[in-house]
Design a protein around this nucleic acid. Structure first.
Length: 239
DNA sequence: GCAAAGATTTGCT
DNA sequence: GCAAATCTTTGCC
């Protein structure tokens, strides 16, 4: 049982999110996502994000203008935009740019730093809720599978981040820069910025060019917690 | 009011 | 490599 290395953090400055979203993406890589109070809380380092910028971005939920679902995207920088996708996965976004500008960063992967076992327990609860309708055996199968996962892979995708941090629509609109928020961002107190690689965004084949090919997925190359999409694109680079 | 598709993940062929 | 799971939102009738 090692101590979570959560000492050297401070509140995440809102101004780093009020700028253009690509710059904000680089600031967010390496930042901490925190659930609950230290030291018992769940803490992870953000290692992959995706940018959705403006109503003209035809891959963005904002492409239809402001709706009930995406209203938070039009809010001030630093608030959370949480939505349900494919009927079962929640996705967490950090809103960027000035109020009324629809832009956000999708948090796609987090590297667990502290509270890994609580993340694992949250994953088991989440999977159990879904598996229960398939019977006790399915529930048990899901549980043993998650318990076999290496800690690095507990939050290695946008839906998995929300499962591991117990995030759902209830978190929509909360202020992630408020140190009092139960779910919040913290700025890591580290010297070395992480290396960042970019690639096209995942799962947006419906969007026409140039949006489809914009290199607006940002990830830490070689990190063990990046999503499978980025692991694949990393392999392509290596070949 | 209804059909269609989705910023995902998993398992099976 | 492909389809299923699962339900909200959008867009059109």
């Amino acid at each position: 049982m090692s101590d979570p290395q959560i000492a050297g953090t401070r509140p995440f400055p809102r101004r780093l999110l009020a700028t253009d979203t690509e710059a904000a993406a680089r600031s967010l890589i390496g930042a901490r996502l925190v659930r609950g109070r230290n030291p018992a809380g769940r803490v992870g380092r953000i290692v992959e994000v995706e940018a959705y910028i403006g109503e003209e971005d035809l891959a963005s939920h904002a492409r239809f203008g402001r709706t009930t679902r995406n209203a938070a995207m039009f809010g001030p920088p630093g608030v959370a935009y949480v939505y349900l996708v494919y009927g079962m996965y929640h996705c967490l976004n950090v809103v960027t740019e000035a109020e009324r500008q629809a832009a956000a960063l999708l948090v796609r992967a987090v590297e667990p730093i502290g509270g890994g076992e609580e993340m694992r327990a949250a994953r088991v609860r989440w999977a159990g809720d879904r598996a229960v309708r398939h019977g006790k055996a399915a529930e048990e199968r899901a549980r043993s599978q998650i318990e076999a996962l290496p800690e690095d892979r507990l939050a290695s995708g946008p839906g998995l981040v929300c499962a591991a941090f117990s995030i759902d629509r209830a978190a929509d609109g909360i202020d992630l820069c408020d140190p009092e928020s139960d779910l919040r961002l913290e700025l890591a107190d580290e010297d070395d910025p992480l290396p960042v690689e970019t690639g096209p965004r995942a799962g947006i084949d419906y969007a026409p060019d140039p949006w489809r090919s914009r290199p607006w997925r940002f990830f830490v190359p070689g990190n063990a917690s990046i999503s499978s999409v980025s692991l694949r694109s990393r392999r392509q680079v290596a070949l």
